[in-house]
Design a binder for these strands. Structure first.
Lengths: 334, 334
DNA sequence: CTGAAAGCGCTTACAG
DNA sequence: CTGAAAGCGCTTACAG
């Protein structure tokens, strides 16, 4: 069942069927209605591949994320997809599991699918695959890839002020010794956060002790191990900031296991403000990053660029954070 | 840059380029290598829309879920997508937010995109939109839609034995009064679970008290409200099963708020066995359903059917559950 | 407002 | 092993 069949059934040309289908104003309303009635009757479904081939626009956006199991991403995906559907755009979704090779592969597949734009919302760094996008000229937006900001659109989280708030909060509570659970060095977002932690400590004129920094994997397990490492020191820090909430969850469990009461003996701050923060006991103080805001700005950059006639310069949008204080932070007890 | 340009650059016909591109054995290896070298040099990317139009297969699967923010679904999506990529298939992902109208719309869009198969992993019931799929003949698999099992492939969770295990566990601990936090009547999965709860209670020869059943919304908030309602009764049940983990989280918070100790005064069981179960204090006993298993069977049904020459009969695969006991269940204290 | 026809970029049966 | 050419199902500039 194709447009020729419909044309025959309706007694018109395929051009007229096409116009009726696309709501062109160059069809007599009565003709359009007649055609549409027939289309509905026989359940005709137009072939999008043919349309895309002809028109050159696919009305498809690609969305690549690192890790759909980290609750950070589903909220971002949710919003991004909602915005797309509002514009009649479908989303091909894929995830890399933090693997740069998978990211390059994903990028290539999306370009082959003729997607109109690509949001690369991943934490890992990878330049491979970008050339394919560049050659084809598909609009693209990256997340926190500031070193690529001159050439590619970016949505970036203001980590500096985020960690600044967290450190200031702890300092105000009376903490001087602040430890840090870092993310893996392979992720650009982890590196950004570590850098921001150092900057925040310096701004607060607090010393960073090397043995108070432990490296985790951005997951619960790594947070548990890293926190355990710090708590076993002879002089553990009285406060710890985790580079993300998942590691903070592990840190909380480690403190429980070692009978270190929170916040009495240990103040803990996470990053991301996942829903889980309120589910924990004690509830977790965290630095909030709006996933909706990331999605909105990423989508709008792409939508604007994919609708524009001419290529525009790379944009950068910075997302502000907000500290949400809960039960896991308090005054240190001597 | 299209296949004609490549043919010209390589000094061969488009047919040869196409063959080289697709690894046909009808090209001299040397010719193929020559063509591929040129393709790599100029960063040629084939146009998938043209290919799909010509071949009729899109190598695209559609995946519809209800609610990506419920951690149940990301794990399912993760696995499904991994299986697809393994087969060179991309996934168009979309979610309905439990809205049947959105589901119908999503189904239609997927069919227009020529997807080779569709996994409808939603909880809501909706028959609208299915006719479009039926007319086109796109393979499809549903989740827990047993009333449609004769006509459509289904992956179904064995709720009956799942709740059976949970009730038996509570009974063995010495509980006689068991309450239930039901899901919303608008969701087929909620209805299945409620029915299964009743069946399990009957099998265990325990009475179901009407006032011990409260209805929630499958979210934390609804679980909180429903649990509060039960705890405020003059004779609250000593054990409660929540229709899903999200509601159990709310129930836990409600018990905390009302200073009802778990499991001393209240045993609590959730359903789904989300990662959150181990993050809670106390950790939550829950009925585990393997998301991977659902994804694997859904994908394989679709893959088989989309590769098959002829339409086959609707399949049904049942997923077994497993009770994971944790700290939230214990002997009742008089 | 309507139609005839070209053409988007591929693949493949056919001929050699 | 290679090429010429038809055709997948649409849209749209052009002519009327």
């Amino acid at each position: 069942m194709n447009i020729i069949d419909i044309a025959r059934l309706a007694g018109v040309s395929t051009a007229t069927v096409s116009r009726a289908l696309n709501g062109s104003d160059k069809v007599r309303p009565k003709t359009a209605a007649h055609v549409k009635r027939i289309i509905a009757k026989v359940h005709y479904v137009p072939n999008t591949s043919a349309r895309v081939l002809r028109v050159g626009k696919s009305m498809l956006f690609g969305l690549i994320v690192s890790d759909i199991k980290n609750p950070f991403f589903p909220e971002l995906i949710d919003k991004f997809e909602a915005l797309a559907v509002q514009q009649g755009i479908d989303v091909i979704f894929t995830h890399t599991n933090y693997d740069p090779a998978r990211q390059a592969h994903a990028l290539r597949r999306l370009v082959e699918r003729n997607v109109d734009a690509i949001a690369v919302m991943t934490s890992e760094i990878s330049l491979k695959g970008l050339e394919a996008v560049k050659v084809v000229g598909t609009p693209m937006v990256l997340l926190n890839q500031l070193e690529l900001a001159p050439n590619f659109n970016n949505v970036a989280v203001d980590y500096i002020s985020g960690f600044g708030e967290a450190v200031a909060h702890l300092k105000e509570l009376g903490h001087r010794g602040i430890g840090y659970l870092a993310g893996p060095a392979s992720l650009s977002s982890a590196l950004c956060r570590t850098k921001a932690f150092h900057a925040a400590m310096q701004a607060a004129r607090l010393p960073v002790k090397k043995q108070w920094i432990a490296v985790g994997d951005f997951h619960i397990e790594g947070g548990y191990a890293a926190m355990t490492q710090l708590l076993r020191l002879n002089n553990p820090p009285g406060a710890v900031i985790a580079a993300n909430d998942m590691m903070a969850v592990g840190a909380l469990q480690a403190a429980n296991a070692l009978k270190v009461p929170i916040p009495k003996r240990l103040s803990l701050i996470g990053f991301d403000n996942l829903n889980a923060c309120t589910m924990l006991t004690p509830s977790l103080t965290s630095i909030a990053v709006s996933r909706d805001e990331i999605a909105v700005h990423a989508f709008e950059m792409l939508f604007r660029e994919s609708s524009a006639k001419r290529k525009s310069k790379a944009q950068l949008h910075t997302i502000q954070t907000r500290l949400i204080t809960r039960q896991s932070t308090g005054r240190p007890v001597k």
